[in-house]
Write a protein that binds this DNA or RNA. Structure first.
Lengths: 210, 210
DNA sequence: CTCAAGTCTGTAACTTGTTCTAGATTAGCG
DNA sequence: CGCTAATCTAGAACAAGTTACAGACTTGAG
C-alpha cells in the first residue's frame, strides 16, 4: 500500500505553504458543502470561490476544472471513510461477506448525503482523460478499502480482476440508485451478488474449500 | 420481450408525420457523425442543428437536452447492434461464454468508433433523473441482448441480478478503457470474470452441475 | 531591507448549453 | 379553398464553466 500512502496528500510537486494548504482546505470544504446542499449543479465555480474566500482565478489554479475539484473532493471524503472503516473492521467470517458489509456501510454513509454523493460520483464517471491521474488515485483508494476488507495481503491477478469488477459494480449501482432507477434493496442484492466472485477467485478456492 | 418491442420506436405519444420522422433521423445522424469525429465535446447543439438543417429551437423540441440527444443516439446504435447480433448468435456452449463473446463483439464494434462510444457512454452515466425513462430504455435493450446471449427465457431473480452486475461492469469498464485507464486486455479479463457469475446463478447450478 | 518572481484579487470577456420571442410555415378540418 | 392550431425558423438573451489580464500582495534570495 506504499503507493497509496504516498498519495495520501498531494504528490508534493511544490510543497504548499501553510496559507496555501489552508486555502486548499477551504475550497474543498466549500465544494463539499455546496454539493451536499444541491448536488452537482449547485457546485458553481463562482460560488465555491466566494464561499472559500478566494478569487475565481485562484480556484482554477488549485483545481483546473469543476471535475477536478469534485474528484478531489471525493478523494478527500474517501480518505475520511477509509480511516473510519479501519477503526471498526467488518466482522464477517467470509471475505465476501466482509467486503459486502464494508460496501453497504459505505453506501449507508453516502445515503446520508445523497446530493454530495451524486456530485462526486457523477464527476468521477464524467471525467475525461485530463483527469485520469486523479481518478486513478480515487480508484486506488477504493481498491485499498476493498482489499483491506478481504484481508488479502498479496492478491492474485484473478482477485484483482474481481476487485475491479466489484468497483465497477459499486460505482454503477450507485449511479443507478442516485438517479432513482434502482432501489436500495436492489443495490444490496447486486453488491452481494458481485461479492460472490471473491470466493470464486480465492487462491485456495480449488483446494481448501472442500 | 414485449416491453422492449413496444419501445422499439418512440412511445408513440403523438404519431410523427413523415417530415418529422425525417427530421428526427437527420438529427440523430448528425449527432452520431459529430460524436464520431470529436466525442462528447464535439456534439454542440448549434452544430447539430445546423448539420441536421433544423433550427436550434426545433432541436430542443425533439430532444430536450444534449444528454437526451446522446442517450437517444445510443438507443439508436444499440438497436442496430441488437439486430446485427441476432443474425450471428454467439457460438459458445456455455451461457457464460456466449455472453462474454457477445460483449467482446460489441466492444470491438465500439472500438471502431471510440469517440462515438465515449460521447454516448459519458452521456449515459452523466444523465440525471430527468433522463431516467430514456436511460431505462437503453438498459432494457442491453438486458435483452445479454439475456438473448444467455438463452434465458425465464430468468430467475438471481440471474437478473447477475445480468445487472454484468451491465454495471460493462459500462464502467468501457469508461475506464475510454479514458485510457485500462487496457483492452484488462477489459476482456474483467468481462470474463464477471460472466462467471452466470454459472453461479444458473437455475440448475445446485443440481445439474454435478 | 530590497528587489524579482511568483501568487492572488477583481473583473471582464468568451464559449456553449438552454430559454425565449416574434413572425413564417404547415397540417388538418370544415 | 380558407382558417386555426401547432410547428418551425431565425436570432437574441441568459447561465455557468473557463480564460485573460492588470494591478496588489507575498515570498524568498541576496
Amino acid at each position: 500500500m506504499t503507493a497509496v500512502d504516498r498519495a495520501d496528500h498531494r504528490p508534493a510537486s511544490p510543497p504548499l505553504t501553510e496559507r496555501q494548504e489552508a486555502r486548499r482546505r477551504r475550497i474543498l470544504n466549500a465544494s463539499a458543502q455546496l454539493a451536499a446542499r444541491g448536488g452537482f449543479d449547485a457546485v458553481q465555480m463562482r460560488e465555491v470561490a466566494e464561499a472559500a474566500g478566494v478569487a475565481l482565478g485562484t480556484l482554477y489554479r488549485y483545481f483546473p476544472s469543476k471535475i477536478h475539484l469534485l474528484v478531489a473532493t471525493m478523494q478527500d471524503q474517501l480518505q475520511h471513510m477509509h480511516t473510519t472503516l479501519r477503526k471498526r473492521p467488518p466482522a464477517g467470517a467470509d471475505p465476501a461477506q466482509r467486503v459486502a458489509e464494508t460496501l453497504m456501510r459505505a453506501f449507508r454513509a453516502l445515503q446520508r448525503e445523497p446530493q454530495l454523493a451524486d456530485a462526486m460520483v457523477r464527476a468521477l464517471t464524467f471525467a475525461d482523460r485530463s483527469v485520469s491521474p486523479e481518478v486513478d488515485t480515487v480508484s486506488r483508494l477504493t481498491t485499498a478499502i476493498i482489499l483491506d476488507a478481504m484481508g488479502a495481503e498479496h492478491p492474485t491477478p484473478g482477485q484483482l480482476s474481481a476487485v475491479r469488477v466489484i468497483e465497477h459494480t459499486w460505482h454503477s449501482a450507485l449511479i443507478t440508485w442516485l438517479s432513482g432507477r434502482a432501489s436500495i434493496a436492489q443495490v444490496k442484492i447486486d453488491i452481494e451478488t458481485v461479492c460472490r466472485l471473491i470466493d470464486l477467485t480465492a487462491p485456495e478456492a480449488s483446494e481448501a474449500r472442500a
